[in-house]
Structures are given as C-alpha cells and as structure tokens.
Nucleic acid binder design. Structure first.
Lengths: 330, 330
DNA sequence: TAAATATTTGTAATCGATTGCAATATTTTC
DNA sequence: GAAAATATTGCAATCGATTACAAATATTTA
C-alpha cells in the first residue's frame, strides 16, 4: 500500500502539501494540486484512515448496536439512521449482539478506542455502560434505561399497550392474555403496566396465568402460545411484538383455532409481513423509519455541540386488520 | 480519556512495560504486572485501538457488505459469519448498501484504509473493485463475478433452478412462469439458464412473456406477479427468491387465485417465514448458516496464510410444502 | 523599485500505542 | 562470592497521517 510519503516524493512536494491538497484543496496552488492529484492517481494512493483518525481523533463513523438481526423490526430503523447519516457524511456500521452483552461491549469498544464517534443502541443489554456512566456519545432507541439519563428515542410503551388492550376490551373480550418479552426488560415492564391499567380500568382482575414470557423471536411466540393455550382460556391475545404475534398465530392455527373467530390477536411494531399474513395482523404501528432518523439527528447534535438531549417520545398508531374481531360466545 | 502514559506514570513504570503487561503478560514480572493492572483500573484506561492498529497494522475486524438488510435471507448468513469470527477473535461489522454501489465502496474503504482486515461481500454491486483488481482480502458469498477470480462461496444456481423447474414439470405443469431478480445479475443469469435447461429438456419452448423482473424484494415480487398475470396464463410460478415468492403469492391470492389449486409457487432460499405462510411455501433451501461459516473460514485462511481459495459450491435442497401441487385442468 | 501583504510551501511536532535493542536487575552455577 | 545466564525494564524509533508555525515565494501597493 502506497503512503503519503511516496506520493509526496513522486509529486516533488512535501507530505504536508499532499495532505492539504486532499483536506483543503483551496489552500494549495492550482498547479501543485494537479501534480499531487496525478501522483495520487499514479501510485493508487488511498489515505490510511487509521493514521488520520489518530491525528484528528474523529472517524466520521457511528455504530448501531442491534440485539438480533433476524428480527425484521430493526431493518427499517437502520434505514432511517442511514438516511440521515449519509446526508451528514457519516458511515454506519452495524453490530449484531445476538442478545449477548459481551459482544455489545465489543462494539462500544469501537467508540472508546476512537474507531467510531458515537453509538446508537437498539438494545438495553449493555451492562458495563451503566458502571462507567454515560461518558460516550450515545443515543438509545426503542429501549431505555429508566434510571440513567441517556438521550432516548422511543414510544410511550405503556400507552401503546394500553391502547391495544383497550381496543380488545371494546370489542367485548374479557379473557385477554398476553405474551411479553423478557420480563426484566424496561419496555416490557411498561407494556405490562399498560395491560394492567386497561384491564383494571375495565374492572377485570389480573390473572397470572394469562401471561407468558418470550424473547421477541418468532419461535418464542410460537412456544409461548402453546403454553398459554394449555393453562388459560382466552378469546384474545396481545403480543409485545409482531414476530411473536406471528409465531403465536401460527401456533394457534396449527392447534386448530380460527383467527380471528376463536382468537383475536393484536401485535406491535407493524412489520412488512404483518399485513400479508393470513389473516392480516392487527397491530400497534411504531414509526420505525422516524425512530431511526430522529436517533441519528440527536446523535449528530451531541457530536457537534455536546448538547444533551433528553427523551423523545414518538407517536404510535393502532392498525386494525383482520386478525381481531368482536367477541362472540362460542 | 486516559492514555498509556498516565497509566505508566501512576504505576511508576514506562509505557513499554504497560504495553507489555497487556499484550504479553508473561514477560513482565508478577509484581509489576499487578501494579500496572491496578493503575489501569484506577484511571479507567482503555487502549486506543486506533493507535494500536496503526502500529500493528491489523484491526481484527472484518466487514460484511449486505445489499439489503430488509431481506431476511442475509440474517442467517451473517450469524454464520459471526459464529466463526467470534471463535477466532474477530469483530464483525455490517454495512448495508441499500443496493448502492457508492455506499459499498465506502465499506471497502474501511479495508483499504486499514480499519478492517478483510471483507465478505454478499453483493455483487461493487464496480470499483473490478478496476482495482482483487487486491484486498475478500470473499464473496452467494453472489459472484463470473470473470474475476475472487474466492467464492455459493450454490450451483443453474442446477438449483433446474431442480425447481424440473419438479414443477414432473407435477405436470407446462405453463411455468418465473420472476427473476435483476437481469444483469450473474446469479440470475445462471438461474435463468437452469429454467431454460429444464424447459427445453422437457421439449417446451421458452415464452418471453413468462418472465418478469424483480429486485428480490417482497414488493417487487408482488408487482411482478401483477404484470405476469396480465400477460401470461400460467399454472406454476418459480421465483428466484422467497421474498419475491411471498410477494407474488400475496398478489395471486388477492387477485382471487387459489394457491396451490390455481397456481403452484416455488421459491428459493427458505426463509424463516416461508414455512409459516398460508399455504406454506415450497422452496429450494440454501444452507444459509453454512454459507456464512464457510465464507468466514476462507477469509481467515486468506488473512493468515495468503492462500487463495477458489469456488466453494454448497448443496441446496428442494423442500416440498403446500404451495405446489400436481397440475389439474381448470 | 522597494516595502507591505498575501499566498503557497516546508519543517517538525504530534496523535497513542508497539517493539527492537540496550541496560539493568535477578537468579543460577561453579 | 564472582561470573554467567536469564529475566525484567526502559529508551527511543516507528506506524502514517495532520497541522501550527516558520520560511519562501508571489502579488499588490505606494
């Protein structure tokens, strides 16, 4: 790999001039610049970004930490991030943690070690960060830590769950079960609270058997429904995300239930596929692209001005499709 | 951010010793090492990887270039790559190109500029590489350049398509249409050849109207089928991937067709969802995890030994499910 | 034409680590 | 206890760029 020195030699100038010809073309004379450019082309020079970053201590790169690349929910968010990043000249690198906090730390390491300027985390599985505090430029999207003040972009999880359950109640359902994500996850705690709020407002008591835990994956939704079906008689089901809702729906159908006649299902997210399954999935839509765009905009502000932005809460919307219907006695 | 100097000062040793205490603990005395470790902990030191990489000129990071993060096909491949990478101490960064060759080049730049040691490309949209030749450590997976000898992991695309179409022919279908990906894409060219091979072997001529072009996305499959349906009367459809097959299936159903009674559909890939749609999708399975694992293993060999490995062709398998059935006169 | 000013270029320090070599300290051997 | 062998440490060069500052050159002004 040719270095700046070889270019300088060939062009008959100093390395400083070569560097300037690339970084601030206007401050080097037309003629010299052309010589430099020719030399660059001739040797096929490409600057060593490592050396440059070491000197300038910025990499114009940000890292997005994703808990599970197989969950389609994150795809659109990433696209939103990319759109803004590209406009502002930032590269976006994705790190898939496979739900593994150690791996997440490896990606944070990229920022600590100056290989990236900031992080957007789509996962809350970040143990060490908490200990070191919020020292690095970082934005959380979707997930959040209730007690640490990291800038966050998210929805009102409790209100969204409340809306979903309220909708089912208004359809006349009384036995409403739900499939949660990991129980210790803040957004799941908030959504559970929304469920309870709606049920209690309607005067119904909370049955512990009406709840099962999943991990947001299709398979966990499938398995959770099988357990639910054995332990609790329900006419409606609310799932904390669409992947699990789709899994539960498949499970219900293969257990001989008709959706929505025997079981109404409401999910959350609004995935690409959710409107194309049979039946089409009723769901609480999250503005995925907007979440990504907003997160990146906030991160850029932090990087530029060190401004600390707080919670951004975006709107959700109930999309009624054909996986839910009015309650009917069986 | 504390540097190695501050650690050295605090521990009362030289920076060299601190460095060695981290890189080769066995060559520094027990007592000194403990002093250093204590100092590191006290100031919260974390080595600047940029500086380290500059000196060692390796980053223990590889980049995976993905054409479209919304296409679930790539998720499992990425997982396969990660599994092996992690075992070997490599970090994996993903770059989503959104089908954009310029962005792809940005990611290749990471390797040229020594921020990453190598690339696995899951896309063939890499114009500049061709000009510069295959100078960097690189493996292609799934896609390939027919004329440039980059180490590749892939399936036999022609044989796979042949197998799919042959299967439909054996079911008695004669009017078999197909939805291709981008027509200039090498794997699409190979799959088209497989289609033609099967049709011609069976003694059928090729009807140009039996073909439509998509871009591997769900929506393009949906749109392509609407065009096909207007221009060609078919009893069976082969799609070059599952995303398009699922889109086409939805389109067919919403046009009032029964699958598989009126139309048999065969896809390719075997996505997570493919076995859970209604009807379940018959497809040619690609060994996604294995593709990823193999690609990473080859890349590691290249990085270590500079060995040049050639084409690796992996096995596919026809998975017969309920979206296809024997031809029946209507 | 000389002085003043502006433009262009070069010199050398710097970013934060790693590492070859030399210097020093410790242990072993006789 | 001295010499030899070995283990530990430090000095200083180095990786490949950027950039403050100074020096050289070109341009304008009087």
């Amino acid at each position: 790999m040719p270095t700046i020195k070889e270019v300088a030699l060939l062009a008959g100038v100093s390395t400083a001039t070569v560097s300037r010809a690339m970084m601030n073309p206007q401050q080097v004379a037309e003629k010299t610049r052309r010589k430099v450019e020719a030399a660059i082309a001739e040797v096929g020079y490409s600057p060593n970004a490592i050396a440059r970053n070491l000197r300038t201590s910025e990499s114009k790169t940000i890292v997005v930490i994703i808990p599970d690349i197989e969950n389609m929910f994150f795809a659109k968010i990433v696209r939103g991030i990319q759109t803004i990043a590209q406009q502002q000249g930032y590269k976006v690198l994705l790190g898939d943690t496979v739900h593994n906090a150690t791996l997440a730390n490896d990606y944070l390491e990229l920022v600590r070690s100056k290989q990236a300027d900031g992080v957007i985390s789509l996962t809350a599985e970040l143990p060490k960060v908490l200990q070191h505090g919020t020292s690095m430029p970082m934005v959380m999207a979707c997930e959040y830590f209730p007690d640490f003040p990291i800038p966050t972009v998210r929805i009102d999880n409790q209100a969204a769950a409340y809306q979903a359950v309220k909708y089912l109640l208004e359809l006349g359902h009384k036995q409403i079960a739900y499939i949660s994500g990991p129980l210790d996850n803040p957004i799941c705690i908030a959504r559970s609270a929304g469920y309870r709020q709606a049920m209690q407002e309607a005067g119904y008591s909370i049955n512990e058997l009406a709840k099962e835990e999943g991990d947001f994956s299709f398979h966990s939704g499938h398995a959770a429904f099988e357990r639910l079906h054995r332990q609790y008689k329900m006419s409606a089901l609310f799932c904390f995300n669409d992947m699990m809702a789709l899994g539960a729906m498949r499970s219900a159908i293969s257990l001989g239930l008709k959706v929505p006649d025997d079981l109404s299902i409401v999910g959350m997210d609004d995935l690409l596929f959710s409107q194309y399954t049979d039946p089409q999935l009723t769901t609480i839509m999250q503005p995925q692209t907007l979440i990504g765009e907003t997160a990146m905009q906030i991160l850029i502000k932090i990087l530029n001005a060190k401004t600390v932005h707080q919670d951004n809460v975006l709107q959700t919307q109930l999309l009624v499709r054909s996986s839910s219907r009015r309650y009917q006695k069986l």
